[in-house]
Structures are given as C-alpha cells and as structure tokens.
Nucleic acid binder design. Structure first.
Length: 598
RNA sequence: GCGGGCGUAGCUCAAUGGUAGAGCGCCGGUCUUCCAAACCGGUUACGAGGGUUCGAUUCCCUUCGCCCGCUCCA
C-alpha cells in the first residue's frame, strides 16, 4: 500500500537517470540483470565526486586517518572469522500451502499427530496426484481439520473434488517440519548464502571456493597490523577504504538502493580501550550534551568517539547538500545490536519509497551506520589467524606503573571481565576463556591491548540515490498559449554536481561568438568539468543543463566582444536554481567558479 | 523464492491476427541578444525465445526485466 504519488517520483527519477545518462540498467541490451546497475557519463562524474569528497575529508584533511585499497577476493577464512559464513547462510524453508518463508532455525517446535498422505484423487474427473503431503494436527483439534488442510494443498494443485489417499498418522515431538500457523508441511531447509561465491584457480572444487567480499571493512581489520607498522600512526587512528562489495540479496529493490554489487565508503577508527584511557588520563570523558563534541581529545572514551563520528558524518552530508532535516537517525535497540556491538547509530535519508507510518512520519532508510564494535573484529582475526592483533602503548605502560595498586586492580578486573565476556560469547570453553582473559589483563598492565573500533560505514550508491532524490525538482510553467510543461531541475550542491559549468555562445551562427565561447571553455576545462553547447536556443541549453544539475551557465554574447565597450570580455553567468544572472569578467571567471564548486 | 500488475521509439502514450502512429526529445538547417520560441528537414520501437497460424506486436507457453506486496536483509 505504498503512496502512489511517491512511486511516481521514484519512476521519474529512474526515467531521468536513464534519459540523461546517470544510471542505466546493467546489461540493458540483453534484458538486464537483476540487482546490477551501470553509471553513465553523468552518474560516473557524480559518483566520483562523492567518493573523492569522502576520501579527501577522511584522509587528506585529517592527520589521523590513512587509506587502504584491498582486493575484493580474500582468504575465505576471513569470512569465517568475521561471522559472515554463518550469519549470511541461514537455511530457509517454505510452507507448501501458503508459500510463506521461514528461517529454518526460527521455526517453533511443535508436538502432535502428523497426518500424512501419499497423494489424492479428483473424485469427479478421476485425475490422480501422487505428491505426498503431511499436516501436523494441533492438540485439541479434530482430525477433520488436518484433512481439510491437506485437501487445500491438493486443490492448489488442480484437483476439484479431493479424495485423500493413503492416510497414515504418527505422533511427533518438537518437530520443526511444520508451519506453526497452519500445521502444513514445510519444504526441506535449503541453504541460503548471501555471499557471492567463486573459485580461485581454474578448477572448480570445494577446496578453492572463495567469496566476493560482502563488505570492505574486513580487509581493514586483516591489514591492521601492516598498516599500523608502516603508516607511523599511533592510536587513535583510522583506516579508510572505498570499494565494491557484493551480496546475493534475496530481493534487490528500489532502484540502486539495494543491489547485489555496490560500493561502500568505510572507516575503521581504532581507539584505545576505555580502561587504557582511564589509566593514562585518570578518567574517561563521556558525552555530556548532544551535538558535535569538537576537536578530539586524548581522554575520550568510546562513547565520545562514537558521538564524534556520528556528528562528523552528519557534517559531511550537510556539506554535500543533504540538510539535517532530510536525514533521520536510528539508535539501534539492545535487541537489534549484535552481541559485540556497544552502540550503533544509523543515519537515514527520507527516500521517496521510505515507509510512512500511521501518524504520517517517515523514518527513512539507511545511508550509513556508525557502529561502536568494541575489539570484536580484531580479536576474531587474532584467534582465527593466530597472529597477534594487539598494539603496544608506551603511554599506557608508563602511566600504569604510576597508578595506585587498587586502581590497577580495578582496571585490570574490568578489562578481564570485558575480555571474558567476548571469549565466552564466541564459544571459547570457560576454563580456557578465563586463562586467556587473565593473560589479556596482564598484557594491559604491560601496555598491550587489542584496539577497539568505531566504524562509520556508508553506501555510495544509496548516497547517490539520496542526492538525486534530494536534488530532484519539477518546475511547471505555462506559456502564453496556455501550454504547460514541467521542466526538471536537479539542484545538486555544486560540490557534487557532475558538470560544474555550461559554456554557450548566444548564437551558433556567428563565428566570433563561437570562437570566443570555445576560448572561454578551453580556459575552464582543465580546472573543472565544463560542458560546451551551441545547439538550439539559449533557453533550451539552460534547460538541458538544469536537468543535468549543472549549477552555472556562462553565455558569450555580443557585449563580450565589445558591442558595449564597457562590457568587453565579460560574460553572463546564470544560476541554475533561480535563473538569476550576473556579469563577470572572463579573467575572473575561473576563480569565481572554483570558489563555488570546491 | 512466492503472489499480483506491467513490458510498443531516448521519454510519455496510442492502435492492430495482415506494411506500427503521435507528442516531446535528439541531430541538421534558418534567425543579432537570454530561460525547452517558431519554421523546415532527419532520426529511432513491439524485452528475448519457442508454439499456434497462410500470417503474431496482438493468442498460448517459457524466460528475462521493472513495479507492488510477502519473505529476507544492512
């Protein structure tokens, strides 16, 4: 029951994207392939701008984040350690009657009497079916109701006047083979693997199965040691990566929002455990007010860092034109959180397809999740690879020696408990877990620990769609003949706009205008993406650029050539959003534009 | 994966068991002055495969894709 109006908007966006070359369906001429998309000329520029802005804001403008570009296919053990092999492959089964799908491990166990049939016959036509079917009869219900359910099953297969064949009964205890809602038999559990699989090497065998990464983050954890040792960074610091990821989504939907091949921008920001911060600084700073907490401080605990990154990310979105009001926030509840996660804040965008609740509120759909993941990921890789993921912290060792013994004991105990909790949750036998947690707590006293991590993880494609939806505006105008038409203007922030400036000679058939316009175009193109267009009336060329989201238009007219001497070598600059015009000297143009598009 | 709807030109939409049409766009041309102007000319389509038929875009089957719901999922 989606809002028809909203769907119309999505359809317009999809259609515009194709018409203007933002996004095409992958493999279009072969009929397309579900869940895959291609970015056309404008889309490629838009996406590149977004990724570069993210990369620049994360790495080049910060001292404490470095980059990584890892391979897409990695050792398969990584996905075992990360939990993806297990959590991404739930066996599923379907109700044979209603086709409803269940996770096999979530089917409620039931007891009762199973009525089984070898098949059924149409008493009228004589047609016979040999499909076996069983029904679990709930306690207290008459056998007739089981027969009725079975009859429905055969009716769905084309029998009219059902006569059941070969009835047998059997008592079962705690069976998960039946739909708890109607007792109908479920299909055998079938594996569902959300990871795309391939083989490394030309022989396809179980020995060389590998996966296309379902997220870019794991590579960062896996390369943590190498980066830490080579980048001359000390905690806290982060590793950023932009890249493709792949998931065999059950249902790719909503244009590029959920696709099977997508791109992520992920940061893993490694911080000291709170116990270490407290040992060094005496106390741990925690959030006292909402909003951005300002410049990072050495005494921040994970909560400060989490809040800091949420606010940093919001600033990023604001900086590319997504006002705070277009965003939504979702703090994951304890039930939603993974056991190792301490907090996750999702940043949402109100998409045209986002659900509207009964009160008319739109929560939005996820653009990015900022997770405080404790030391789970590095710990997992330490255990699975056998390689230490710990770091040595000189400040901690020095500070620890100066602590009062009771403080040392207190911190060591808290660290011990946290490690013990992790180890037992991940299935380490109790005695071994206690021994290892003790070892970890002893390590802390020597300045060693496994870093904790804050993970802002954003979807590039989702952001592109958000930018398109946010920029999309239809302007309907009626001319003097009463003919009304709707023009589309994509009001991109100049920073993300694919084309920054359109350059036009007012008229195409005047060689002087054309020559001058080309000269202006040449002077701009090295500094920003400029587009030269001489075809059609000037209004049409403005409109074409509006539709592509180009923020500025530059028009060369006879005054540029000196028809009015005081306007010699000046051009008209036209603003996309309101059509306002101003006169700018050609000499000033590059600087004027750069100031507005950077 | 299931159920429902849909698939005709770049876009929006017609018509038809017998050679597929419009508007807009796009390309070219005319025009000395700014928001899809006008005029002239040009351009392009039945998602794919199979079947029924003398003949299928139309009827049937399969398949692919899109939309909605369920399911699933970050």
């Amino acid at each position: 029951m989606a809002e028809p109006k909203e769907n119309v908007l999505m359809e317009k966006i999809v259609s515009l994207c194709k018409r203007r070359g933002f996004i095409f369906q992958s493999s279009d001429i072969y009929g397309g392939i579900n869940g895959f998309w291609d970015f056309g000329p404008l889309g490629a520029e838009l996406k590149r701008n977004v990724k570069e802005l993210w990369w620049h804001s994360m790495t080049r403008f910060r001292d404490d984040v470095v980059g990584l570009e890892a391979s897409i296919i990695m050792a398969p053990q990584i996905w075992k350690a990360s939990g993806h092999v297990d959590t991404f492959s739930d066996p599923m089964c379907d109700c044979l009657l209603t086709k409803k799908r269940f996770r096999a491990d979530q089917v409620e166990a039931q007891s009762g009497v199973v009525y089984s049939y070898t098949g059924a016959k149409d008493a009228t036509s004589g047609k016979e079916l040999n499909d076996p079917f069983s029904v679990l009869l709930a306690q207290g219900k008459p056998p007739e109701s089981a027969r009725k359910t079975a009859a429905q099953f055969y009716q769905l297969r084309g029998l009219q006047n059902v006569e059941l064949l070969g009835e047998t009964t059997e008592k079962v205890e705690h069976s998960t083979r039946f739909n708890p809602e109607n007792g109908a038999q479920l299909t055998e559990p079938r594996p569902f693997n959300l990871m795309l699989q391939t083989w490394v090497g030309p022989i396809q065998s179980d020995d060389n199965v590998a996966y296309l990464r379902p997220e870019t983050a794991q590579a960062i954890f896996v390369q943590f040691k190498n980066v830490h040792e080579t980048a001359r960074q000390k905690l806290p610091f982060g590793i950023a990566q932009v890249g493709k990821a792949f998931r065999n989504e059950v249902t790719p939907r909503n244009f590029i929002f959920r696709s099977r091949e997508f791109e992520q921008m992920e940061l893993e920001f490694f911080i000291k455990p709170d116990e270490a911060v407290e040992a060094i600084h005496g106390s741990v700073a925690v959030p006292t007010a909402p909003g951005h907490p300002g410049e990072p401080q050495p005494n921040w605990g994970w909560q400060m860092w989490h809040q800091y990154w949420v606010e940093e990310r919001v600033r990023f979105y604001e900086g590319i034109g997504l006002a705070r009001a277009t965003l939504g926030f979702h703090l994951q509840t304890p039930e939603e959180l993974a056991h190792y996660a301490r907090a996750t804040t999702d940043i949402l965008f109100k998409f045209p397809f986002s659900k509207v609740d009964a009160a008319g509120n739109v929560a939005g759909d996820e653009l990015e999740g900022i997770a405080a993941r404790s030391d789970f990921d590095l710990s997992q890789h330490e255990r699975h690879s056998g390689k230490s993921m710990g770091v040595f912290d000189e400040d901690l060792r020095t500070a620890w020696g100066k602590l009062a013994p009771e403080k040392q004991a207190d911190l060591a105990e808290r660290y011990y408990q946290a490690r013990l909790k992790y180890l037992t949750k991940t299935g380490v036998p109790e005695a071994k877990a206690q021994a290892e947690a003790k070892e970890d707590a002893d390590g802390l006293a020597k300045g060693q620990y496994i870093p904790h991590v804050i993970e802002p993880s954003a979807g590039v494609d989702r952001l592109i769609l958000a930018l398109l939806a946010n920029a999309f505006s239809g302007i309907t105008s009626t001319d003097e003949k009463g003919k009304s038409e709707t023009r589309v203007v994509l009001k991109f922030h100049p920073r993300v706009a694919p084309v920054k400036v359109g350059v036009f000679p007012l008229l195409k058939n005047k060689p002087e205008l054309v020559a001058k316009a080309k000269e202006v175009f040449q002077s701009l193109r090295g500094q920003m993406l400029a587009f030269y267009d001489e075809a059609g009336a000037i209004g049409r060329r403005y409109a074409r650029q509006d539709e592509a989201g180009t923020p500025f238009g530059v028009t060369i007219d006879f005054d540029t050539l000196g028809e009015q001497p005081e306007l010699l070598n000046t051009v008209t600059v036209r603003h996309r959003d309101d059509g306002a015009q101003e006169r700018i000297a050609i000499a000033d143009l590059p600087a004027w534009l750069l100031a507005r598009v950077k």
